[in-house]
Design a protein around this nucleic acid. Structure first.
Lengths: 144, 144
DNA sequence: TTCAATTATATTGCGCGCAATATATTTATG
DNA sequence: CATAAATATATTGCGCGCAATATAATTGAA
């Protein structure tokens, strides 16, 4: 059947390649993360904590664009694995402070070569193009 | 804590903005799709069927980069809603043929203005930039 | 022709991702 | 000071998304 509404064609939408691409690239981390017992989202959380050491659930959510419904159970799994601690702030009992543990910091050593292995496979874009892509994605992210 | 491995900084990775961006844009469809009782992925499936009318589960998966583990339950929900039918091929009983129904085709009328409403909110990129973004995403998608 | 390999879909299990709601704490207001 | 509003996190429910496994049909090779 011919499509009388060209705007409804999959190939005319920016959203679909973005969605498919995101899943594909996130999936490309699995071979490296699964042996460590990590998911991609857990890896993102750890990257933030490797940089900042300690942070509230809400701050983590602001940085990663995730809410407590996603983060709370994920953080409990990381806690159970021994990579983070969860404790209520003394100053404000509403806030839960997440901190990286010694074991969590040691994971960094096992993860430090992952980015280069990932980007090795996706050399189809030049450095400039990748930079431009990065910039455009942040235009969307920062919007409104 | 300073990060001794700059490649592990969130802001140095292309994958994260892609992942966050994808979720944000997919989420922007919700206000339009939820009143119709559809999810974004169901909407993608319907877009393919509005164009092609009838197709196997495997073909749908090839187009949308999704596997039977995702598609089978999703298609059963669309069947239950009356938007598609699922029947085994006469020629090859392994194949399940998905076909759009009358009711499924009528949904097209209610969806035809969604793309313009979505892109209206994301006018931060010029037409040329959007085209360039689209092209780069497909470079990743088609890779290997 | 028989049976092993291949193909197509379905099922199971688990971790998101997010909307909606609940709970507890803090802040603001009268 | 009492209490209503705001804030931060937790819980619940549901639909993906995907790996792993299962099932059934078809194809291929001896």
């Amino acid at each position: 059947m011919a499509q009388e509404y060209p705007q409804l064609l999959l190939n005319n939408q920016l959203c679909f390649p973005l969605y498919a691409c995101s899943r594909k690239i996130v999936g490309s981390y699995t071979p490296f993360l699964k042996p460590l017992g990590l998911t991609y989202t857990q890896y993102l959380v750890l990257m933030v904590l490797w940089e900042h050491e300690s942070m509230s659930v809400g701050q983590l959510g602001n940085i990663l664009y995730l809410d407590a419904g996603t983060l709370t159970p994920l953080l409990k799994r990381l806690e159970k694995a021994g990579y983070v601690t969860r404790e209520r702030s003394k100053d404000d009992e509403r806030i839960t402070i997440i901190s990286i543990t010694e074991a969590g910091n040691q994971l960094k050593e096992q993860c430090k070569d992952i980015p280069s292995k990932i980007s090795a496979g996706s050399s189809a874009l030049t450095r400039e193009e990748a930079g431009e892509l990065y910039r455009m994605l942040y235009v969307f992210l920062k919007e409104e």
